[in-house]
């Protein structure tokens, strides 16, 4: 079992590799199919943002344990132009490119925890967590 995977994002094929890596790790950790899909979708959105805005970057996916809960930590980073106004960028429908503007707010809704640090001219780092839901506790189950 690998505890951490790092993938350089520089072409669309890397988006697919990142999604794959998250699914493989999530399956090992006991995430439900639905949760795996939510994580993979968020990863897909944010790694595509990297290609679109920064050209290249990196994603790291790792297993984390906090008390008795298990989870996955996803860090997506680039050294791109940065986001001048994060608050606006977190609104649905806001996009400076031809995208749908759902990447950031949408990914936040797909994951359990989401934080973003961005500096203009330096880059952007997004950290997200998804926790394995305990069955019956009203987590991500159908």
């Amino acid at each position: 079992m690998t505890d951490e995977v790092c993938i350089r994002i520089k072409a669309d094929i890397d988006i697919m590799s990142a999604r794959h890596a998250s699914r493989t790790m999530a399956a090992e950790m006991g995430f439900s199919n639905l949760e795996m899909t939510l994580i993979a979708t968020a990863i897909s959105e944010l790694t595509r943002n990297i290609l679109q805005y920064a050209g290249h970057g990196e994603i790291s996916i790792c297993k984390v344990q906090q008390g008795n809960r298990k989870g996955m930590k996803v860090v997506v980073m680039d050294e791109g132009p940065g986001i001048p106004d994060i608050e606006t960028a977190m609104h649905d429908g806001y996009s400076t490119s031809k995208g749908l503007g759902l990447g950031l707010p949408g990914s936040k809704r797909l994951m359990d925890e989401f934080s973003i640090v961005s500096k203009v001219g330096i880059g952007t780092t997004i950290t997200m967590y998804k926790w394995v839901s305990n069955k019956g506790s009203g987590g991500e189950e159908w």
């Binding site: 639905l34 899909t37 979708t41 759902l102 949408g106 809704r109 797909l110």
Partner: peptide, 11 residues
């Protein structure tokens, strides 16, 4: 599962 993820994303 895909449908749920899409709706949550806002698609």
């Amino acid at each position: 599962d895909v449908a749920l993820a899409m709706v949550r994303l806002g698609l």
